[in-house]
Design a binder for these strands. Structure first.
Length: 737
DNA sequence: TGCAAGTCAATATG
DNA sequence: CATATTGACTTGCA
């Protein structure tokens, strides 16, 4: 070894002078010194040997890791192959469907002829796209598809839900599509168009054309029909009228005379009339009634046909839209506007609306939707909600390994790139499932499907229908969040992972939810969704396991990104953002310009605002303007501040109240009825503004902090939230009490 | 139209 | 790097 030879040389060097006569003591000393050196060098050798061993071990570990990754990759490949296999079926089915459609669309209707073409095209292109993308998920996210191309699993529910917003039942959907087709072709009223069902603006059109209807006779006929075919009011109401069973029952049992009905009230009768006048509708619903129930259909094995069903729906929808747009442009304008308000810069609405977009865009959107569907594993659930299978014995939503893959796919899109538009993240159209699975009762299932289907519709119409479905459900939000927090902490799972995977929310939102949960009763329907979802997640025995899988995949993706990035760095290449998300991460500096800078209010600005708030929690426009000018802030900033402060004060009050239920010795005061900051020093805006001029004194701030902490401890809120200032005074965590 | 609720994204903090 | 905070925004409702 080199060390040893060095040592040898060293020794020789030192020994040579020893040939000259010297004292024995010197010699001894030298020997001792050399012995010491030898010892040191030996240790060094040992150390190096250990190092070598460690390196060898690490290498071995790395090899093992790589082997594991290889295994995982192989599995992925298998999955993808399976998917490809299943996709072949879908493509075939689609092709058949397209040809069927083109057969169904007689040449006499030139306006509708583009539809089959579109279908064919979309199938072909989607197949092509799919074959391209089977290799990997992440990078292929087609950014060029713009916002509605957010083709992630969670988004897909919204994409599709745009088509069948209120329908989670395949059979009812088919029915609706059939009904839709029929009616749109035969008459002006699209009686079952999901979005039109609740549309009120079309009423005028209806009224214009409708004479007086014999409501009694219509209901009589409908009742007979339902009885004959053994169709439930619920199914009928859902499929044909867009109403709940209770309403249907009421209408059928006590039909109001036509003259006493409002425009809206007449709608169900018109729908019933149209329904009765269409033989095909009757047949279709009859088949369903005689055969499966909607629930049965709904719960049927969600296998390969899921994807094809959805694609079919998309294509049908596209065809329908084109059909309608060419037929009844003016009507569609009114109805469509109601349901999917056209926002500026929002060329691709969630609907497949051919009107208003270029044919290319329209086709593109269809292709995209279909492709999104194809990309999705047919076995995998669409919605994160669905992904978490309930405990055995409850609903039958399956969870296959690919689920996590789906979410991984989802996650590879950086948050910044996600459109903020409502519905692109799994939001609407989900309470049905949630409630179903939370309740875990088949009986409930039937109702809830009805219920959830109308929830958060694009136009927000008819939401009243379902609220009662959830009145019976009450969850302890505090215990839920506590349990979730515990699980996440114990298993070292991040809020980001949990939020994006389970709730479809960002880390910050999760943080807020977990640290400041509102009591169930104070939550809106939308707010309840998160807790239902969390609850369901808690009930899932494999929740941690699934999240860990996701985490692993996330890490793999990260690794991959780093690898690719380094590769490109080596070659001095910068990814084009339009084609690859990685660059966002690795060259974020380039995009700082587009990054919105957040206004950060100074300590004294906040103090002044707080003081103003205490005097006037709901300041007038004038006051806001005055404040804004005095503080040199934008009016919207001041206005937003008040909004947020009120909101967060309320939130804290909720929490304080709940907390106080457990600790009854504390008294609660409402945020508006007391001034938590009535701490002497700042009693008015002027005072604050005066104080403004001097730098905040550390001691003063600390004192205030202490005060606030005190307020927190006694369950008083409000200002407790505002604690982090320029000089930090330490974290106050009102929610963590 | 203003407000409440919910959420995001930037940023601060631990 | 995970979590908490907070200004800004969207949506739905009265």
């Amino acid at each position: 070894m080199e060390t040893k030879s060095a040592l040898h040389n060293h020794m020789e060097l030192h020994t040579s002078p020893s040939t000259s006569p010297c004292s024995g003591a010197d010699l001894k000393m030298m020997i001792a010194r050399r012995d010491g050196e030898i010892q040191r060098l030996r240790e060094e050798v040992h150390r190096l040997q250990r190092l070598l061993q460690e390196v060898q071990e690490r290498t071995a570990n790395h090899v093992t890791l790589l082997q594991q990754q290889l295994t995982i990759k192989s599995r992925d490949v298998e999955i993808l192959q399976a998917r490809l296999q299943s996709q072949h079926d879908s493509v075939k089915i689609k092709a058949e469907l397209s040809s069927l459609q083109s057969l169904k669309q007689p040449a006499a209707k030139p306006v509708s002829s583009p539809a089959p073409d579109v279908c064919d095209m979309s199938v072909k292109q989607s197949a092509a796209l799919y074959s391209q993308s089977t290799g990997d998920h992440g990078p292929e996210v087609p950014v060029e598809f713009h916002q509605d191309s957010w083709s992630e699993p969670s988004a897909d529910i919204s994409d599709l839900s745009a088509v069948n917003k209120r329908s989670s039942s395949s059979s009812s959907l088919i029915l609706q599509t059939a009904v839709k087709e029929e009616t749109s072709a035969s008459c002006k009223y699209s009686i079952s168009d999901e979005d039109d069902v609740y549309d009120t603006e079309s009423d005028e059109v209806m009224d214009q054309d409708e004479g007086e209807l014999d409501t009694t006779r219509i209901t009589q006929q409908v009742k007979e029909f339902l009885q004959t075919h053994n169709i439930g009011q619920r199914v009928f109401g859902h499929c044909v009228l867009g109403l709940s069973q209770g309403t249907v029952s009421d209408i059928l049992a006590r039909p109001k005379p036509w003259s006493k009905l409002t425009v809206r009230g007449r709608e169900p009768f018109i729908r019933m009339r149209n329904f009765l006048s269409s033989e095909r509708n009757i047949q279709t619903l009859g088949i369903i009634g005689d055969g499966q129930t909607v629930e049965e259909n709904d719960r049927r094995s969600p296998g390969v046909e899921d994807a094809s069903d959805k694609i079919r729906k998309i294509l049908e929808q596209a065809k329908h839209e084109m059909h309608l747009s060419s037929h009844t442009t003016s009507e569609m304008c009114t109805t469509r506007r109601e349901n999917s308000p056209v926002k500026p810069n929002e060329v691709h609405s969630e609907r497949l609306d051919p009107s208003g977009v270029s044919p290319t865009d329209f086709v593109q959107s269809i292709i995209h939707k279909v492709q999104g569907e194809i990309d999705r594993n047919p076995y995998a659930s669409i919605n994160p909600l669905h992904s978490w299978s309930p405990p055995p014995g409850q609903g039958s939503f399956r969870t296959l390994p690919v689920d996590s893959e789906q979410r991984f796919y989802n996650k590879t899109i950086p948050a910044q790139k996600r459109p903020r538009e409502e519905g692109l993240i799994p939001q609407p159209c989900r309470l049905d499932r949630l409630a179903v699975e939370s309740c875990g009762e088949n009986q409930q299932l039937a109702q809830d499907q009805n219920a959830g289907l109308t929830l958060h519709g694009p136009a927000g119409v008819n939401t009243g229908l379902d609220c009662h479905q959830f009145q019976s459900l009450e969850l302890d939000t505090f215990s839920i969040t506590k349990r979730v927090k515990d699980i996440l902490t114990v298993n070292n799972l991040g809020q980001r992972l949990f939020g994006e995977t389970v709730l479809g929310l960002t880390q910050s939102s999760v943080s807020e939810l977990l640290s400041h949960p509102k009591p169930w009763t104070k939550l809106s329907v939308r707010g309840k969704e998160n807790f239902i979802r969390m609850n369901r997640w808690l009930q899932d025995s494999r929740n941690v396991q699934k999240l860990n899988t996701m985490k692993m995949m996330d890490q793999r993706a990260h690794l991959k990104r780093a690898l690719i990035a380094s590769h490109f760095d080596l070659h001095g290449t910068i990814f084009d953002t339009s084609e690859n998300e990685f660059s966002l991460h690795d060259h974020s500096g380039l995009f700082d310009v587009s990054k919105r800078r957040r206004v950060v209010l100074s300590y004294w600005e906040k103090e002044a605002l707080k003081t103003a708030y205490q005097k006037e929690p709901y300041p007038s426009q004038h006051t806001i303007e005055m404040l804004a000018s005095q503080l040199n802030l934008k009016i919207t900033t001041v206005s937003n501040w008040f909004c947020n402060y009120r909101s967060r004060s309320r939130q804290d009050t909720c929490h304080a109240e709940t907390a106080s239920l457990n600790e009854s010795e504390h008294t609660i005061q409402s945020p508006t009825s007391l001034s938590p900051d009535s701490d002497s020093s700042l009693t008015g805006l002027n005072a604050s503004l005066l104080a403004f001029k001097q730098e905040p004194d550390d001691a003063e701030i600390k004192e205030e902090t202490a005060l606030r902490n005190h307020y927190v401890s006694v369950g008083v809120q409000s200002d407790t939230k505002v604690k982090r200032e320029d000089d930090d005074d330490g974290q106050v965590s009102p929610a963590s009490s």
